[in-house]
Design a protein around this nucleic acid. Structure first.
Length: 415
RNA sequence: GGCCUGGUAGAGUAAUGGUUAACUCGUCGCCCUUUCAAGGCGAAGAUUACGGGUUCGACCCCCGUCCGGGCUACCA
């Protein structure tokens, strides 16, 4: 269903408040908010400190009925019963019971601003009216809402409805153990998507924050849905651990069937303006193979467009650090040139042929194969870190490999 | 301040009164090796916040203390 917008249901909310005012379950109040709120500010008197700290005002004279008030001039407050307790069921925290004396006469409908005939509903009213209307059976939300739940339970009763089952789940905390907020960096799911986390990996990570089933860690969404139960939800707030999130992403990047992964890589390459439509058509198999080759070394989606760029484009930089690390030997220029010639002359382009060619050359030049392998890798993909060399050569194709080697020879010669 | 709520290695969790407190991430080491990951093997890391009590026996039940978090709006 939906989405529904609260702003389109304002009349329903207002009518509910009016109805309660008529029945006596609520009343009009035009006290200034500061007075009623009973916040610390008002009560910082010596007297207050001497006693049990600031005392809150939860009931005021308007409760007894103040003539002449209406929704056009005042707010509507809920008339909380004097004495007694309010109960509700919480699937995570168990049965809850709160003394009514602890519950203030909260506002349901605000007093109107100038030019308005009535004010808007508050959150408490809106959610209850909507949830009754939509026959919601379970209200699952963060435990920061637990303290306000008695107010809502009262509202359900007053509106002649049965309260739903509530389930308050633990909050997610930042490394400093305060509730996750902007201050801790990214807090929206969108920002994690933008960073290149796979939605399913993120879901898996999140699901395990405050819930678990045995030792299970890696769980596809379908499995989580199947195994989830409110009974397994913990009551302890959890700290958001970025390294573990990344671990999940690596797992998904590794284990997902390649066809499920491809659309995400496509999206990433499109964003980087590297995408070629043929990779979804006649060259799909090549694309799939290349992604499969790259993915064991990736952590986040952008890896496919950054250090893997040379697999998808002919315009790429040679990483200075890679050069520094593997282009040390002075004879490299000559060797890479000979390698290019030998590869170009190969009757067949396959893994073993490339392998033999390179090793023979290394032996002939009296240098360890590793030296030539690493230098070649830098030449053809511009990076010190990449998939195994001969597989890389295969997906790149002979022309690219030979061309890139010759470019490398020039670069080496000019230094 | 008041009310609510929580406290098991650095992080996420398990063990729902009964052997040396288990698993995952992270950390460290080894193996694999063509770079770097992944993977495999192993290690370090916890007087279960602290103090009492109940019990033959407590992470688990009770009380207190400390610490954390939430709420305390005519915000959601």
């Amino acid at each position: 269903e939906g989405p529904y917008f609260q702003s389109q249901r304002l009349d329903l909310h207002r009518d509910a408040a009016l109805k309660l005012a008529v029945s006596g379950a609520a009343y009009y109040c035009d006290c200034p908010p500061e007075k009623y709120a009973g916040g610390d500010a008002v009560e910082e008197t010596e007297d207050a400190k001497k006693e049990q700290g600031p005392r809150r005002i939860t009931r005021c004279a308007c409760r007894e009925g103040k003539p002449g008030l209406s929704a056009e001039s005042a707010a509507i407050r809920f008339r909380v019963p004097l004495g007694g307790v309010t109960r509700f069921q919480d699937a995570v925290f168990g049965p809850r019971e709160v003394s009514n004396d602890e519950i203030e006469d909260f506002v349901m409908l605000r007093s109107p601003k100038v030019g308005q005939t009535h004010g808007g509903p508050t959150y408490q009213l809106s959610v209850v009216v909507d949830d009754i209307d939509m026959r919601i059976t379970h209200v699952i939300r963060g435990s920061d809402h637990i303290s306000n739940t008695p107010k809502q339970a009262l509202l359900y009763l007053a509106l002649g409805a049965t309260p739903p089952i509530f389930a308050h789940v633990p909050l997610i905390l930042g490394p400093d153990r305060t509730r996750l907020s902007k201050r801790h960096g990214a807090t929206s799911v969108g920002s994690y998507r933008d960073e290149g986390f796979l939605p399913e990996a993120f879901r898996n990570f999140l699901a395990l924050l405050g819930w678990s089933i045995g030792d299970a860690e890696f769980m596809r969404t379908a499995e989580i849905i199947e195994k989830f139960s409110l009974e397994g939800v913990s009551r302890t707030n959890a700290v958001f651990d970025r390294p573990k999130l990344e671990w999940f992403n690596v797992q998904y990047l590794q284990k997902l069937p390649i066809d499920e992964l491809l659309p995400f890589i496509q999206g990433e390459l499109e964003r980087a303006k590297l995408w070629q439509p043929e990779w979804a058509g006649e060259k799909r198999e090549w694309f799939s193979k290349t992604v499969d080759l790259l993915r064991p070394r990736t952590r986040l989606l952008p890896d496919f467009a950054t250090w893997s760029r040379a697999f998808f484009s002919d315009t790429f930089e040679i990483d200075p650090a890679a050069r520094e690390k593997f282009w040390k030997d002075e004879r490299l220029g000559g060797m890479l040139g000979k390698l290019a010639d030998a590869l170009a002359a190969l009757p067949e382009w396959n893994h073993d042929a490339c392998d033999h060619t390179l090793r023979e050359l290394a032996a002939a030049e009296g240098v360890k194969a590793g030296v030539l392998i690493n230098a070649t890798r830098v030449a053809i993909v511009g990076q010190a870190v990449a998939p195994p060399l001969f597989e890389t050569m295969l997906v790149l194709g002979r022309d690219r490999v030979v061309n890139r080697l010759r470019v490398a020879v020039e670069i080496l010669a000019s230094h």
